[in-house]
Design a protein around this nucleic acid. Sequence first.
DNA 1: TGCGTTATTGCGACTCATTCTCAAAACGTC
DNA 2: GACGTTTTGAGAATGAGTCGCAATAACGCA
Lengths: 144, 144
Amino acid sequence: MTTTRISSTDLIATLEDRGCRITSPRRDFIALLERKEGGFSAEELCSELPGVGRATIYRTLKLLLEAGVLCKLAMPDGAPKYTLARFDHHHHAVCVQCGLVTDFRDSTIERLMRAVGSEVPGKVVGHRLEVYMTCQGCLVSPAD
Amino acid sequence: MTTTRISSTDLIATLEDRGCRITSPRRDFIALLERKEGGFSAEELCSELPGVGRATIYRTLKLLLEAGVLCKLAMPDGAPKYTLARFDHHHHAVCVQCGLVTDFRDSTIERLMRAVGSEVPGKVVGHRLEVYMTCQGCLVSPAD
DNA sequence: TGCGTTATTGCGACTCATTCTCAAAACGTC
DNA sequence: GACGTTTTGAGAATGAGTCGCAATAACGCA
């Protein structure tokens, strides 16, 4: 369920399509993203891109978020993490130990939304679902 | 589904049960909570309780959160809101216009969790679900 | 009721994630 | 290559929340 690799070429094309200029900070940012496996934090990116200013990191993050190629999710304590979006509409199962993110799409959730829609007085306009887990790797070898 | 009123007496009893002292800032805080309909922010409480320090507001919020009588939820933009908990384990449908919170409990979500559990490699340890809506009142008279 | 112990308070400084301001630098087009 | 516009980076500002600490107030006991 977590296969599709996203190439930096695709991400650059996404920016071009939105009329953005392809600058070297953006190029570096995207090259780094391409190498990321699971979820990552903004601060992590900042320290891995020492030549790029924090503001630019956050601006680029927001840009890709708006373009729909990144997702922002929250850890149990509310700490934000980002991850590459591989499906159009999907949800995340994030490992609370190592941050690995497994995407999944499930029709049950859509059914659930319809059920809620008929139960609450008003119109459902969206939702957010995060599943927290301990991944196989962390179950086998509890890292920290 | 959003019926049960919680009285300040209950909330005070909750604090007593945890061995907390019933101080006047806490009393004021609880009296204010009792009058709240939907979700509210910490800053809102601060300005409505001018005699009580910010730190105390946040400490009391945390206390009641730990006691399980309050829930913390996130708006679509990530802004935090708090709401009184009326069920043990439940989810929220929050109006993105006025902040009204409707609680619901749905067995579909528990089914969903089991489905995800068998799909992702690892052990599901928790989840977070927020449903965003426009409530009946806001549909009828779009306030702002 | 009066006291002492201990929890709680409030202030202000601090953190963390993120946004804003604005002058300087970099793009892409002509 | 020149030029207009978009981006950038440094640092100040913001919002949510926490922390340290001296002053204060609850509660149990006599």
